[in-house]
């Protein structure tokens, strides 16, 4: 009964920084709060109406100097805090390199996670300790939010677009995983856990195909990607690639159609027909599959049919992993 926690575990590198910021702000809040709370009580008691022993002379109504003081001191502190917090925010949301990428798909009411080597987990996410992780998050239906309090990170899962966040788990253990954006009847059951394993155990776990820990391997999207476990995500992507007939044009040296070289898509700056330059990232690949005409590669025609409504979110992440792997193998990995 009396053994209940008052602070969450801190199990990520970024979480340490955010915790420190949290406690510094809390400290400031306690200082200012105490000044006001105890100040008010002290003043209200000391200057109570029936206390005639106090000196009430020279009670001025305003004073520019004190006004400036209590405007400028909080202002300076606020600006410092603002900068510090913005920096930490950039650490978890701004793009970084050298990560282990997991794809997270939210739907009413479960989390579906995919590892690069093809292991799938439902409502569980197993991660290695000590490595930077990039979680690429999307939703199939309504808004969800992927929240891991022990890492102090959270990101909304928005249908139709990828959101990413970065963090580095440090302490092996089991942690809560929540959906924090209200998503309907079973919102509070859209929970799970994040399991952090030491690097070696994690590798062993991955090689075993995630057995023992991953709770389910059922496909959410169905379709061509029913292989899970034995194939890597990229390999599954390759299968999907073939099943959808993409290889008729792409990756086909004999193709009659002139298509962009998708082995160079990932990670490059892509010049578009209208002169804009876009990044070859998950969002671009996703859009180019679903709605190829939106951003046409310079020097190519708009020939590819849109796959809107034809591929599931799960297949999309497989295809993205496949296209990533093409770039990785041609440039030597990232």
């Amino acid at each position: 009964m009396w053994n209940f926690p008052l602070v969450p575990p801190t199990a990520s590198e970024e979480g340490v920084g955010i915790s420190i910021l949290y406690w510094v702000i809390t400290g400031l809040a306690v200082i200012f709060g105490s000044i006001v709370l105890f100040g008010v009580i002290y003043l209200a008691v000391r200057y109570r109406a029936d206390n005639n022993a106090v000196d009430r002379s020279n009670a001025v109504d305003s004073d520019l100097r004190v006004e400036l003081a209590w405007t400028l001191v909080p202002l300076v502190l606020a600006l410092i805090m603002f900068g510090w917090a913005a920096k930490l925010y950039a650490d978890i949301y701004a793009p970084r390199e050298g990560y282990y990428e997991v794809f997270v798909i939210g739907k009413q009411w479960m989390w579906h996670c995919q590892h690069p080597n093809g292991v799938r987990e439902n409502n569980v996410l197993t991660l290695p300790a000590g490595r930077l992780v990039k979680a690429t998050i999307i939703s199939q239906d309504v808004l969800h939010a992927f929240s891991i309090p022990a890492f102090r990170v959270k990101r909304d899962a928005v249908p139709g677009r990828y959101n990413a966040m970065y963090f580095t788990p440090t302490k092996p253990g089991e942690y809560h995983l929540f959906c924090t954006e209200y998503c309907g009847t079973k919102h509070s059951e859209m929970i799970g856990k994040v399991i952090v394993l030491p690097e070696k155990e994690f590798q062993a776990w991955l090689e075993k195909g995630g057995q023992g820990l991953a709770t389910a391997t059922t496909s959410m999207g169905g379709g061509a990607a029913a292989g899970g476990g034995t194939l890597t995500l990229a390999q599954q992507g390759e299968q999907t690639f073939k099943a959808l007939g993409c290889n008729a044009c792409h990756m086909n040296p004999n193709s009659a159609v002139k298509v962009p070289d998708i082995t160079k898509t990932w990670g490059s700056d892509i010049m578009l027909e209208d002169g804009r330059v876009v990044k070859g990232d998950e969002a671009y690949i996703r859009e180019s599959i679903l709605n190829p005409g939106a951003k046409i590669h310079k020097g190519y025609q708009n020939l590819m049919p849109p796959y809107q409504g034809q591929v599931s979110e799960e297949q999309l992440v497989q295809l993205i992993a496949y296209i990533q792997s093409l770039a990785d193998s041609s440039t030597g990995g990232n």
Binding site: G245, G293, A294, N302, P305, P306, Q308
Partner: peptide, 26 residues
């Protein structure tokens, strides 16, 4: 691939240039 799409664009001098391609549903 047995599916219908709309190519949206402009015809100039008898030449059709597609801006974008969408499914009928979209």
């Amino acid at each position: 691939n047995g599916r219908e799409f709309y190519e949206l664009g402009k015809t100039r001098d008898g030449q059709f240039t597609a801006f974008t391609k969408v499914t009928p549903e979209e």
